[in-house]
Amino acid sequence: MATGGRRGAAAAPLLVAVAALLLGAAGHLYPGEVCPGMDIRNNLTRLHELENCSVIEGHLQILLMFKTRPEDFRDLSFPKLIMITDYLLLFRVYGLESLKDLFPNLTVIRGSRLFFNYALVIFEMVHLKELGLYNLMNITRGSVRIEKNNELCYLATIDWSRILDSVEDNYIVLNKDDNEECGDICPGTAKGKTNCPATVINGQFVERCWTHSHCQKVCPTICKSHGCTAEGLCCHSECLGNCSQPDDPTKCVACRNFYLDGRCVETCPPPYYHFQDWRCVNFSFCQDLHHKCKNSRRQGCHQYVIHNNKCIPECPSGYTMNSSNLLCTPCLGPCPKVCHLLEGEKTIDSVTSAQELRGCTVINGSLIINIRGGNNLAAELEANLGLIEEISGYLKIRRSYALVSLSFFRKLRLIRGETLEIGNYSFYALDNQNLRQLWDWSKHNLTITQGKLFFHYNPKLCLSEIHKMEEVSGTKGRQERNDIALKTNGDQASCENELLKFSYIRTSFDKI
């Protein structure tokens, strides 16, 4: 039985969820670079991206490699990797027998973001014989899940209580170790020597080791999670996991709180800001991140802002960003909400898709409305799209047979046209069989910064309504002859009103 693990408890099935942008060198404390989270699957090609990484700022997932063999891993080693800020997950990587050479110096898994409450997941690794993470000293947050690894031993010899604050939620089941077939031998045991430290858990006094050649490092209890030197002297209180010299914040392997210019500090002093819960960055760093993602459509890219001495992905609820200094300031009234469309555009074809934009005031991208039916549609669209004030790209209304009016965009005031449909149009209306009105132009103002209007096959939309939009939106004169079809717009509506004058002759039985 794995020490510190839980057996036999019912657990939810383990679901495996399925960018080499360097964020800056980590400095003297770390020998390499800070790398983003990685999802490495199918083959070993991307694994080489770990070569210079000291910190993975995010998670590391290595999974679904069915053609790899043990010899493929023999020359692979990433000794610079010290810390993973989120979680480490391995799933069905064939041929991998140990992690001792792959990650010989991995010391800390912070667990800032977890995989279903777990910071370390080893699942269905069919050839893994031992973990071998002999320098792993601290899992700051989260638990361990090690399950269905039929060859995995050296679990009962690990004292997880020396690595985690609590072992109650560890789930370590259905491994070879369960069948008591392992016969784990710690260093020196074969020669009758006791080389590794022994600890007591559940009444068992057991030597602690990761492999037959690597003991588990056990520091004096007084050192807590700070770690200790090879001689057993406690590291500085700002260290986490390990250090090369005692009581020196510049000799830590990793930091308990924050890293700044080669030393570990309790908090980031001005003019620095907390970033990702582990390091200090200056304003320029946060500003660069903001600008890199301002026009990016890459998933996970955030326009970072500053709030409460932190550089964070977005302002919290009730705050909006001051564009001059990136500071989050309290909103006066309802907060603006910028919604970034991942692929640059979004099609609204149902109430469900409209709900995804609920509360958005600025759309960074283009909207395509293609709704053919739905219950209580006008009210639903207004509830979900009615706060949109600005669209950076274009607005396209296409084959939306259920629409009679666009009044559900009740606050839309600006279409920038930074991206144009077919390279020309910022407003595009095609084949809307029941569209009769755009907006009530006596109450609604709309500016279209650039781009043209396109109207074709809107049989109940009168040309007068379209011409009014040209005047109000500032697009009059931009359109070419064929942009607004004269014969297919309003051709099934009563669009022309003329005053009919009647004269009559009164007659009676005795007068003409």
Rank of each mutant, 00 (worst) to 15 (best):
V108P: 00
M83K: 03
I139Q: 00
L81K: 00
T250I: 09
R263F: 11
P313K: 04
H302A: 12
F275H: 12
I306P: 02
V218D: 05
D169E: 10
K191M: 08
N322Y: 07
L50R: 02
N257V: 01
F103Y: 00
Y272V: 07
H59F: 03
M65R: 03
H28D: 05
V200A: 09
F115I: 03
N179P: 05
N42Y: 11
R145A: 08
S296K: 12
Q303G: 12
Q204C: 11
H290T: 06
L233M: 08
Q204F: 13
L90T: 09
V34N: 07
L88I: 03
E130M: 15
N309Q: 14
F116R: 08
T45E: 02
L106G: 00
G203Q: 07
K148S: 15
Y154I: 05
L89V: 00
C264L: 00
G333A: 12
W210F: 02
D184P: 04
G111F: 03
E130G: 04
M137G: 08
N257I: 01
G192L: 15
G232A: 06
E57D: 09
V173S: 11
V218W: 12
T107S: 11
F78T: 01
E33L: 06
F258P: 01
G262S: 08
M125P: 00
D101E: 14
S317W: 06
Q299T: 14
R263K: 08
K148W: 02
S237P: 09
C209H: 02
P271K: 06
G203D: 08
R141Y: 04
P249F: 02
L155K: 02
I185M: 10
Q216F: 05
K100A: 05
P271A: 13
N179G: 14
H127Y: 04
I122K: 00
E266V: 10
I306C: 14
T199Y: 05
P31F: 04
D101N: 09
A156E: 06
R279C: 02
H236E: 14
R141F: 09
T157I: 03
E124L: 02
H214M: 13
H212S: 06
C215T: 08
H212Y: 14
P197Y: 10
R263E: 06
H236Y: 03
G58S: 01
L133E: 01
L233G: 08
H274L: 04
N149T: 03
K67V: 14
L131W: 02
H291R: 06
A190H: 12
D165G: 12
Y259V: 05
F91G: 05
R297I: 12
I185Q: 08
D184N: 13
Q276N: 08
L164S: 10
D277A: 05
T199P: 09
G300Q: 08
P270S: 08
I62P: 00
N150Q: 06
R263W: 06
K80W: 12
L327E: 11
V265C: 02
V121S: 10
G333T: 06
T329L: 11
K80R: 09
M83I: 15
F283Y: 07
T140A: 12
G232S: 08
Y134D: 11
L99V: 08
R297S: 11
P246F: 13
P336R: 05
G300T: 10
H48A: 03
G227Q: 05
F103G: 00
E180V: 09
W160Y: 11
F205H: 10
G183P: 09
C255F: 00
R162V: 09
I158F: 04
I62C: 01
G95N: 06
E151L: 09
P187F: 14
T199H: 14
P316L: 03
I172H: 05
R298K: 04
I56T: 01
N202R: 07
D247M: 04
C239T: 00
V206Y: 02
K294T: 14
H236Q: 04
R279P: 00
L89I: 14
N322T: 02
M65C: 03
D39S: 10
K224N: 07
S77Y: 12
L60S: 00
N308S: 09
G227A: 05
T267A: 14
I122L: 11
F73I: 12
H274A: 15
L89R: 02
G203W: 11
D177V: 02
I40K: 00
L106N: 02
D165P: 06
V218M: 07
P336F: 06
L131A: 15
D177Y: 03
S112Y: 10
V265Y: 13
L47M: 03
E71W: 05
S112P: 00
C252Q: 00
K193L: 14
G183S: 06
C252A: 00
Y30V: 03
W278C: 02
C228W: 01
L327M: 14
D177F: 13
Y304P: 09
D178F: 11
S143I: 04
V218L: 10
H48D: 10
T189G: 14
C335E: 07
G32A: 15
V281S: 00
S317I: 03
G58N: 00
D86N: 05
N202W: 07
L90S: 01
Q303I: 06
C315A: 05
A254I: 02
L120S: 01
I56N: 01
L136M: 01
R297Y: 02
N135A: 10
L133K: 01
N308M: 04
L327R: 07
E124G: 02
K176M: 10
E33K: 04
I146Q: 02
E33C: 15
E147T: 06
E97R: 15
Q245I: 15
V265H: 14
G241N: 02
V121I: 03
F115Q: 03
C153K: 02
A156D: 01
H307W: 13
N138V: 02
H28E: 07
L60Q: 00
L289F: 07
G300D: 14
P334N: 08
C228Q: 02
F283R: 14
M321H: 14
D184L: 05
C315H: 01
D39N: 09
P249C: 03
K224Q: 10
G300M: 04
Y94T: 10
N325I: 01
D288K: 05
C186G: 08
I146D: 01
C53E: 00
F283V: 15
Y171I: 13
I306S: 02
T320A: 11
A119N: 01
C219N: 15
S225V: 06
L174G: 08
C219R: 03
M65H: 13
S244N: 07
C228F: 02
C264I: 00
N150T: 07
Y154S: 08
D184T: 04
R92A: 11
C243W: 01
T329C: 07
E33Y: 00
I82G: 06
Y154A: 07
F205N: 13
T320S: 08
C268Q: 00
N149W: 00
E147K: 00
G132V: 01
D165W: 13
N117G: 07
L60V: 04
C223R: 01
S77F: 15
L81M: 08
L332S: 03
P31R: 02
R41T: 15
M321Q: 10
R263Q: 10
S244F: 15
N202A: 10
C182L: 04
G183A: 10
L240V: 06
L50Y: 05
H48Y: 05
P220Q: 05
P316S: 02
Y304G: 12
V265E: 13
L289E: 13
A190D: 14
E57H: 14
G58K: 00
H236N: 10
G95W: 04
C228E: 02
N309L: 06
T194P: 10
H28N: 14
A198S: 10
N325Y: 09
V121C: 13
G111R: 00
S77N: 06
G132P: 01
V218N: 09
E266K: 00
Y171L: 04
I146N: 00
A119Q: 00
N105M: 04
P270E: 09
M137V: 09
H307N: 00
T140N: 05
S324P: 11
L90E: 00
E49M: 13
Q299D: 07
H226P: 12
C335L: 02
H48L: 11
G262A: 08
Q61K: 07
C243A: 00
E49G: 11
E151F: 11
K67L: 06
N138R: 15
K292P: 13
S317L: 07
K193I: 04
C215G: 03
L88S: 01
S77K: 13
S317F: 14
D39E: 14
P336M: 06
E238C: 01
S98P: 01
L63N: 02
S324V: 14
Y118F: 09
P271D: 01
L76F: 10
P330M: 10
N170W: 04
Q287K: 11
H226K: 08
D75S: 12
V121F: 03
T85Y: 02
C239H: 01
C243E: 00
P187A: 08
E71L: 04
L76C: 07
S284T: 05
N149E: 00
C153L: 02
H212M: 03
P336A: 04
M83R: 00
F116T: 02
D261I: 07
